[in-house]
Each structure stands twice: as C-alpha cells, then as structure tokens.
Amino acid sequence: MEVIKQGARARTFGRPRDACPYPGDSRERRAWYEGYDGAAWNSAWDLGTRVPHPAAAHRAGTATVETAAAVSPVVSRI
C-alpha cells in the first residue's frame, strides 16, 4: 500500500512516470505504476468523484424527502 502512495506522490510532485525506483517486472513496480496512473481507489480523493457511504446516502435521501414533505402537502401523502 505504501508503494502505491509513493507512485501517487511522484505524479503529484510532477515526476516523470519512468522515475519509478523499483526493478522492472516486479510487484513493487506494478504497484508504483498503479499509484502513479491513478487507480480506482485513488479517484476517491478527487472531490468531484466521491461517493458517500450507503448509510450516509440513505440519510441524505431521507432528509430530502422529509424536507420536501414539510414544504409540499402533496409529497407528504406518499
């Protein structure tokens, strides 16, 4: 996991992709490239792509319905 973070940090600081310090065809090199290239777990750091935890999403959805029910009598009949 630390090797993935190293790759991500290298990209953040503008280092080139071929700056990977690990030997070719090693597990560490693949992990470093995974971090550098921005793996799926890494995209969660981008604010625009964050997805809330299902429990938090459920609470937010419930609050929206409750708010709509308080504002509109039609919604409160649902």
Rank of each mutant, 00 (worst) to 15 (best):
M1W: 11
M1K: 11
M1G: 13
M1Q: 12
M1F: 12
M1Y: 11
E2N: 10
V3W: 01
V3L: 03
Q6R: 11
G7L: 05
G7H: 03
A8F: 08
R9M: 09
R9G: 11
R11Q: 06
T12I: 12
F13L: 13
F13E: 11
F13R: 12
F13N: 11
G14Q: 10
P16G: 06
P16E: 04
D18R: 02
D18V: 03
A19R: 00
A19W: 06
A19Y: 06
P21K: 03
P21Q: 02
Y22K: 00
P23Q: 05
P23S: 01
G24C: 06
G24V: 05
G24F: 03
D25F: 07
D25Q: 12
S26Q: 08
S26K: 08
E28Q: 08
E28I: 00
R30L: 09
R30M: 10
A31K: 03
Y33P: 00
Y33T: 00
E34K: 02
G35M: 06
Y36D: 04
Y36A: 02
Y36N: 02
D37L: 05
G38N: 06
A39C: 15
A39L: 06
A39K: 07
A39Q: 13
A39I: 05
A39E: 14
A40Y: 08
A40G: 07
A40T: 09
A40L: 14
N42P: 01
S43C: 14
A44T: 00
W45C: 12
D46I: 15
D46H: 09
L47G: 13
G48C: 09
G48K: 07
G48P: 01
G48W: 04
G48Y: 04
V51A: 06
V51C: 07
H53N: 14
H53T: 08
P54G: 05
P54I: 01
A55N: 12
A56T: 15
A56N: 10
A57Q: 15
H58Y: 10
R59G: 06
G61P: 02
G61I: 04
T62A: 15
A63L: 15
A63F: 12
E66W: 13
E66V: 10
A68Q: 14
A68V: 10
A69I: 09
A69L: 07
A70V: 09
